[in-house]
Amino acid sequence: MIQVTRLNGSKLTINALLIELIEETPDTLISMTTGKKMVILESAAVLVDRIIDYQRAIGLTAASVKSAATEE
């Protein structure tokens, strides 16, 4: 789960695994696999960093690196 800020300043915690698409138009728009969309204050780059940190915390990044090394 990662925390984001809506345009009105309220904090929201979302499941990073359900993010399908991130767009900057110029506000950052997140499209979820559930069909929900939300506009947030954080930039796409900040959001991607938070997603990567979350994936590392739950072991997804390490698993994918190990998997890629195993395939070679």
Rank of each mutant, 00 (worst) to 15 (best):
A16N: 00
K11Q: 14
A16D: 09
K11T: 13
T61D: 01
Q3I: 02
A45K: 07
A63M: 13
M1V: 14
Y54Q: 13
K37L: 12
D53P: 00
T5N: 05
M1F: 03
R50N: 12
L17P: 00
E42S: 04
S67V: 05
P26I: 14
P26W: 14
K37N: 14
V46T: 07
K36A: 13
S31M: 14
D27I: 02
E71H: 08
I2F: 15
L47P: 04
A68S: 04
K37Q: 15
K11R: 14
M1N: 13
L41E: 11
L7G: 05
T33V: 08
T25Q: 15
L18Y: 11
L47F: 01
G9M: 03
A69K: 14
I14Y: 02
K11P: 03
E23R: 14
K11L: 15
A16Q: 06
I58Y: 14
T28K: 11
S31G: 07
T61W: 02
A44S: 15
N8E: 13
E71C: 00
E42T: 01
Q55D: 05
A62P: 00
T28N: 10
E20W: 05
E20Q: 12
I40D: 07
A62H: 06
S43W: 01
K11Y: 06
V46G: 01
D27N: 12
T70N: 03
L29G: 01
K36W: 02
L18F: 09
T13I: 12
E23G: 06
L17H: 03
V39R: 11
S64G: 03
